[in-house]
Simulated assay, not measured.
Amino acid sequence: MKKNMGSTDKIIRLIIAAVLVVLYFTGTLTGTLGIIALVVAAIFTLTSLVSFCPLYTLLGIKTCKVKTA
């Protein structure tokens, strides 16, 4: 897996994941929507930690800086 996420993208995903988790545990998001929010939060957190998004690969998107040697 090659890195395809930049630091700004990772920070935004972590913030969104944190907001979704807070909304779930405060009772704002409940039921099926709450479960979906937790799954999305988990996926955002995981992809942020590994700096790789499979969807970006399919779409040809790369938000990380290219190293020039």
Rank of each mutant, 00 (worst) to 15 (best):
T30N: 13
K3F: 02
D9V: 08
I61H: 01
G27K: 02
L23H: 00
M5S: 06
C64G: 12
I43T: 14
L59I: 12
K62L: 04
L38N: 03
K2Y: 03
C64H: 12
C64L: 08
T28M: 07
K2H: 07
T63G: 07
F44R: 00
S48K: 10
S51N: 15
A37N: 03
A41W: 00
L58P: 00
G60M: 05
R13Q: 10
Y24H: 13
L55K: 12
L55G: 10
L33S: 12
R13T: 07
V21R: 01
L33F: 11
A37K: 02
S7P: 02
T30A: 13
V50Q: 14
L58E: 08
F52K: 11
A69G: 12
T30L: 09
K2G: 07
G60W: 02
G60Y: 04
L38A: 03
K10R: 15
I15L: 11
L55E: 06
V66K: 13
G6I: 05
I15K: 00
T68K: 12
T47F: 15
K65P: 00
K65D: 06
C64M: 12
V22D: 02
T57C: 04
T45P: 02
L55D: 07
V50L: 13
V50W: 06
L33D: 10
T47A: 14
G6C: 05
S51D: 14
A37V: 05
F44Q: 08
S51A: 13
V39G: 08
L20P: 00
N4R: 09
L23G: 10
V39K: 02
Y56N: 14
S7C: 08
